[in-house]
């Protein structure tokens, strides 16, 4: 199978993720869309590693996953705290820098 198809898939996933971030208001959904964009990038990196025949892309994909995991931990904690105080996970409601 032509590896370029993976790149098309990665671009498609990234676009879906970006559209979700721009359009949706629920913080959880936006968060999932961000993950989708990160993983689209990972897919692209891995594909390029395969195309070039070296491991650089795969190493960067690992870094991305570690950073994404850390980000998920912090981000979810914030979202849960906001939800607890406001009883809503809508990003529009959290327009102020104070709780």
């Amino acid at each position: 199978m032509n590896p370029v198809n993976y790149l098309y898939l990665a671009a498609l996933l990234f676009t879906i993720g970006a559209a979700g971030v721009l359009i949706r208001r629920n913080a959880i959904v936006i968060f999932m869309c961000v993950e989708l964009m990160l993983n689209a990038c990972n897919l692209a990196f891995v594909t390029f590693a395969r195309l070039h025949g070296n491991l650089d892309g795969q190493i960067i994909a690992f870094f991305t996953m570690v950073v994404a995991a850390a980000e998920v931990v912090v981000g979810l904690a914030i979202i849960v705290t906001i939800f607890r105080s406001r009883h809503s996970a809508s990003v529009d409601d959290a327009g102020l820098l104070k709780l």
Binding site: A18, V21, L22, I23, R25, I30, V91, D92, G95, L96
Partner: peptide, 12 residues
């Protein structure tokens, strides 16, 4: 305007 998504639009 305080909407996260409009900042995201400018980023994109």
């Amino acid at each position: 305007n305080g909407y996260a998504r409009s900042y995201a639009v400018s980023m994109f």
